[in-house]
Amino acid sequence: MLSWLSLTLAYAGFAALALSMPRHCAQRHPGKPTRLSQRLFQGLGWGGLGLSLWPAIAHWGVSIGLTAWLGLATVAAFALGMALSLVESVAPRGIIALPALAGITAACAASLAG
């Protein structure tokens, strides 16, 4: 479960980072991002990425955990890239957040349960 938590946190982190970038922010709502929201999303993004390191290391130990985290971040970012390209073409915009929300909720619930 910790590995899922790490994956979804990394995904959420990248999603926030994407929202801080002018191009991807425009996909979310028209208009340029304000300086404040840009900073906010940047903070959230790096925060999420940093946080996702913790479950990976807790699960795999330091050396393998770091390796796994890089792999998880790669997969998370790739999934986000695909989701963003879907947003541009077909899907409704909220879809970006769904996997992160679902994943984090499930992972938290499971880690609380056992």
């Binding site: 990248f14 994407a18 970038m21 970012a77 890239g81 695909m82 963003l84 390209s85 541009e88 073409s89």
Partner: peptide
């Protein structure tokens, strides 16, 4: 590195 989420099919 600035644009790495971009995929335009």
């Amino acid at each position: 590195f600035k644009d790495f989420f971009t995929f335009r099919p």
